[in-house]
Amino acid sequence: MSTPFYVSPEQLMKDRADFARKGIARGRSLAAVQYADGVLLVTENPSQALHKVSELYDRLAFAAVGRYNEFENLRIAGVRLADMRGYAYDRRDVTGRGLANAYAQTLGTIFSSGGEKPYEVEIFVAEVGSSADEDQIYRLTYEGRVADEHGFAVMGGDSETVSSYLSSHYAAGASLGEALSVAVAALGHTGDGDRVIPVEDLEVAVLDRTRTQPRKFSRLRPARVAELLGPRGTPEHAAPLPEDGASGSGASGSDSDDPADPTDQVSGNVPPLEHPTNGEPPSGEPPVAPPL
């Protein structure tokens, strides 16, 4: 019988938090910015089909960074919760606070339960009210923390750099064009210099209280985004990231046995990376059964 190692709860939670944080920081940043008529959500997303920003309900939008399969599940759950509540009660009874609480409970339970890997996601639930004072941006982290953000908020990627750029350039009550220009400039800002993000790589959506329909969410098409941004410098695509999916490939078909490549077609000639039970480096000698 083997004795399990003792791991202190602090260490366990720290490891899980580090794991989730690393996953989230690998992606690109997403910014939510309040402007005169509502809330603007912007991110750099080369994919036209896999959205990071989407509609939850009449006055609510969902934005997420991190692992796509995990936040997509949460998005669908949010749409179902909102639609069911609105159908059972009334459309006005679906609130951002209710959904933010449901997400917080879910993320919190998954994070602290030992059996599941923590979700590598961070979420904004944005809500537009009848005036700018009633607009809300809720930020939900991987461990189920909820924060109520004002003015602007940034998550994912190098969020600190983007956030510090926004805090020095953001002005409350800006028009849509001004708010979008600041947000896009912030997303293109890095420690090494500024980059002009091409219009077709931007995913932009707004919750616009001036829309006459009850559903206030609307995606801005690239042509409209270009019109709002006006003339800019030469656009430059970002370096590809694993989350873009372009690096996915089939079996490599290489003839050599590379322990780091799970898709190679040969196996058995190279010892495993480390000893499976005690973690020691391989000795080269095949394991021998202990004497009886």
Binding site: L74, I76, M84, A102, Q105, T106
Partner: peptide, 14 residues
């Protein structure tokens, strides 16, 4: 937490 049925992918019909 949100019940499992809400998180399960599947139907798009309300």
């Amino acid at each position: 937490r949100i019940p499992g049925a809400f998180l399960r992918p599947g139907t798009s019909s309300f």
